[in-house]
Amino acid sequence: MLRYTLKRIVGVIPTLIIVVTFVFFFVRMIPGDPARLVAGEQATLEDVESVRQQLGLNQPIPVQYVKYVTGLVKGDLGMSLRTKRPVLTEVSARYGNTMALTVASLVWSTIVGVLLGVWSGKNRGKWQDFTGMTLAVSGISLPNFWIGFLLIMLFAVKLRWLPTTGAGSFKNLILPAITLGTSIAAIIARFTRSSIVEVLKEDYIRTARAKGLKEKTVTWGHAFRNSMISVVTVVGLQFGFLLGGSVVTEAVFAYPGLGQLLIESVNYRDYPAIQSLILIFSLQFIIINLIVDILYAILNPEIKLS
């Protein structure tokens, strides 16, 4: 198990190198000149050139790349072109907000999705199944920004129970987390349902029933864990989409997180900030996949013991 984990961690390194390299070059392919944006609209050609020199953008791209990578290795993410402050400071100010939103969304959507999925799958073809899957299809089909606006209209504008924008308190988290988690909950519910339906057809479920176990024990003791093996993979992948979804959700709720920072940085062609943010998103995605692989092994003794 330990060896398996170490092997997985070592396997992450090439992925990271590829991500760093690709992002560095692709960011520079976005049309637009950061030096011009920094220098301002009234700037002369000479001003722009001097800004360019100041920012180190006049150097050949391979040189910039080496500088960037050396900085990264030392833990230096560079200076934001927009705010002239270290990117690390900018990111850490918002990182907590995005994490809170992501984790809250993932937790509620996993719990609700799994319960709804088991409930539908166990009662396949009955009204419970129909209800559960109608909810799930709606959850997947509704765009999350639209859900966000509806929630704001109802709970913030009409009922005045919850704030429309901002971050920092639990109340601020509720609406964005519902918005962000809805489609994930729906996807998890559908996967759980089909997984449960498949598992309930297995021979060992018939064995469990033949032993005279209670239906509850059959479902949660035998079917559930087996069905989770495939569901865990899906939940892990959804986490990656949550990061993407958070960009939209943060925009709707003016929630000061990494997603918003990314939008601002792209608008400003803030190369160091964009690079760092995408690197952080990728790193998170990789870590989650690592956790998923380990969880998968814990759930599946055949991997754990080999």
Partner: peptide
């Protein structure tokens, strides 16, 4: 249910798939 396993029990054709793989 109470009768199954205690009064009458059953073994099946497929020993490879009749046991829960994760238990």
């Amino acid at each position: 249910r109470k009768m199954r396993g205690s009064q009458i029990s059953m073994i099946f054709q497929e020993p490879m798939t009749s046991l829960n793989p994760v238990m």
